[in-house]
Amino acid sequence: MPAETERVRTDDPVRRVMRAPVASVTADRSARELAEELLADEIGAVLVDGTHGPVGIVSERDVITALATGGDLDRLQAADLMSTELVWADPQDAIGDVARRMHDAGVRHVPVRGTSGTVGGMVSVREILDVFAGPAD
């Protein structure tokens, strides 16, 4: 395993660039509260908690869609806005592979599995960009 001071490469494990801990909300949070949460954490998406782990993800785009379509931002809830098809990564997956999976699935945020069913972190297109923007090999 490379030392942490070394430049991260696209074949390094995604755990090197994932962000942790991961912000999560309950399914009854309003769209306006989600906007506040997304801004406060400087992240592009939050996970929506269920009884046995995350049941969905709400991104900036979902809140923007509610705004664009004239929805009541105080009544619409995370449960109404969330995507339920989560694309997951394992912490040892290569960053380049996760980038391709994100591109193929059209998602910008991928939760990373932790131990025993927990969420270990989240990687966004932003962290991936930083790796690909590094000096060419």
């Binding site: 906007a35 506040e36 997304l38 801004l39 785009r61 809140v63 923007i64 705004l67």
Partner: peptide, 14 residues
């Protein structure tokens, strides 16, 4: 940006 729009929503400034 989208974040600018989120900020407007959070501030009730639509």
């Amino acid at each position: 940006t989208r974040r600018d729009l989120l900020r407007a929503v959070a501030r009730h400034e639509e």
